[in-house]
Design a protein around this nucleic acid. Structure first.
Lengths: 160, 160
DNA sequence: CACTGCATTCATTTTATATTGAACATATTC
DNA sequence: GAATATGTTCAATATAAAATGAATGCAGTG
């Protein structure tokens, strides 16, 4: 993990994002990729990234695919260059929207189904249901909270 | 992973929280523990939990410790019983506060230091700094966003 | 103070995740 | 259409995380 030919600024950035990645349980290679792109003005191609970060082609490719999927890196075409080049997306609004869309919202849809299942299980119980009902209501309330919170976050992100 | 003697309601709850745990990168045993406590009215002791969830003492103990640390389960003393008993905390306000305090805020303090490092690295560069400055500003702005968002979330959680 | 019941720890094993790099696919050039 | 350059996949490997359960510690009890 010895990056050569990087400025201090770039090294710090890579470390910062490796750390941030760990905080949200994202592989270190993904953090490193974003960190390098974030701190580098010139669009980088896959070979630039693998050689400066000392990571494998496979990792770099998967990492970039992931970053692109949430909209954290953009593909740049450079005239006269066959290789694909990448730069970091830095708009908080877009980053937040992409992350929430890809990493949070899918779980919620799943959760909705499961709450429904749970409600069914409750109504099929033969015993007294007072307690279960209060828990189902609790869940429904949490769900509403999240449904409120997400748009709120997106809107707030747009202001930064 | 075959839980016996559980009502459908409890089984569904355990599955739901195992899933939710995965969504926020928390071990399945932790999800299972909370799921069972959430769906069970009677306070449970460690042996109840290990036997119904079929998980080891060690796992259950660590899991409970973690859940207690963020305030997601409460320790209950029952008169005449030496064993510790546990119930689920369901107040969204407390859950959110505990989670943010233990799992998010520590990373942010760390992040603050690192942004400072980065700023220093930037000012020490000999080359033109236009680009680096814009990135440092970007980071500072993201940081402010989070500082705004956290209290906002806590406040919103209090309303559910 | 020996015994018992429970909580806690931690070295090992198991399982899951990330990384690697060679093989493959696809395009471009001559 | 051969040769070259680039993007993509995936089985194998390395690494990290979680789960296990026996060993330990620490009350309280007789």
């Amino acid at each position: 993990m010895i990056e050569q030919g990087l400025t201090d600024f770039q090294k710090e950035s890579v470390e910062l994002f490796i750390n941030a990645a760990a905080a949200i349980s994202v592989p270190r290679s993904v953090g490193a990729l974003y960190g390098l792109l974030f701190s580098t003005e010139e669009p980088q191609c896959l070979d630039d990234l693998t050689s400066t970060l000392q990571i494998s082609r496979g990792s770099a490719h998967e990492g970039l695919r992931w970053l692109r999927s949430i909209g954290a890196v953009k593909l740049i075409y450079i005239a006269g260059q066959r290789k694909e080049h990448f730069v970091a997306e830095t708009s908080l609004r877009r980053l937040a929207a992409g992350y929430l869309r890809d990493r949070i919202e899918p779980h919620l849809e799943n959760g909705q189904d499961r709450i429904h299942q749970l409600k069914k299980a409750c109504s099929e119980e033969t015993s007294v249901c007072e307690f279960q009902h209060s828990r189902v209501n609790q869940l429904a309330s949490w769900y509403k909270f999240v449904q409120r919170a997400l748009p709120l976050l997106k809107a707030l992100a747009g202001k930064f």
